[in-house]
């Protein structure tokens, strides 16, 4: 099953990134939010069934610019991880995010999403509350929003659970973040009936920031060199640049840019 096109070094590198992205001591959305925004006010609830603790969302100032911030949250201890469902978002989380995105659009604020999830929450209640519909609705509505959306993958970008906050004008990844349609373990157990093959499969999935940049799926990679505070400063700089770029576009252009971005993936296929 080994493929000549994926070298040993690439496999080791990919798996290393998976481990780094999942590291329990890694910085979380809230750490970044506290560092780069002022006057952050958290807003709760989907106005329907509840408040999802895997998503921290609210309004804030980014320098002189009002913004809406939405971040998937994990913890740095077992207890914290349990509290926020290991960053696995439920339908009410996606709907809270969408509610605040619509609010941002009403008040013409840019939307900044931080993605960090192993995937959408797999559970009885999540299915009962329409997990599939909630994700689909976000993909549909996010395409249509007329204010800038920036999505920054800071750790794990797990499948549809990540994409539901990832339909953006620009998608940015941290150097050690990953973004994949399926977890390496999930893929290995489905294809090879052996989740221990996950490290090799991680290489085959090409889920690293560099690979995804080369594919044109993401726009920018933020270096993780230096202290956390210097990493957060680079995130801030990157947002600054993108907000400036987006300020040159009107609402319809922003929407069109976002739709085109996804429309073009696969449009080269020839049909008869």
């Amino acid at each position: 099953m080994r493929d000549k096109s994926t070298t040993e070094a690439e496999i080791n590198n990919a798996w290393n990134k998976v481990l780094l992205a999942r590291k329990i001591t890694r910085f979380r959305s809230l750490d970044i939010i506290k560092h780069i925004f002022n006057s952050f006010i958290e807003l709760h609830g989907d106005r329907n069934i509840g408040d999802d603790r895997s998503i921290i969302a609210g309004i804030a100032m980014f320098d002189q610019q009002a913004v809406t911030v939405i971040g998937q949250q994990k913890g740095n201890s077992q207890k914290e991880m349990e509290y926020c469902q290991y960053g696995m978002t439920k339908p009410e989380g996606y709907r809270k995010a969408l509610r605040l995105m619509k609010q941002a659009e009403k008040f013409r604020r840019p939307i900044i999403c931080f993605i960090d999830t192993p995937g959408a929450f797999p559970g009885v209640s999540a299915e009962k509350n329409g997990q599939a519909e909630a994700i689909a609705r976000n993909l549909y509505e996010m395409a249509n929003i007329t204010v800038p959306i920036l999505s920054i993958i800071i750790g794990e970008g797990g499948s549809g659970g990540a994409l539901a906050l990832g339909v953006a004008n620009r998608v940015i990844m941290l150097e050690n973040a990953i973004y994949s349609v399926v977890s390496p373990e999930g893929c290995a157990s489905i294809l090879y009936k052996d989740s221990r093959k996950a490290p090799v499969v991680a290489g085959h999935l090409h889920l690293t920031a560099i690979d995804l940049k080369n594919y044109g799926i993401i726009d920018e990679i933020i270096s993780e060199e230096g202290t956390e505070s210097s990493i957060f400063d680079r995130i801030k700089q990157s947002i600054e640049g993108e907000l400036y770029r987006c300020s040159q576009l009107d609402g319809d252009e922003l929407r069109k840019e976002r739709i085109e971005r996804y429309r073009n993936i696969g449009s080269e296929i020839v049909f008869s």
Partner: peptide
């Protein structure tokens, strides 16, 4: 891989 994930966004749009 990721190209498959992107089809979710594309078809929804």
């Amino acid at each position: 891989g990721i190209f498959s994930l992107m089809q979710m966004a594309k078809t929804s749009a």
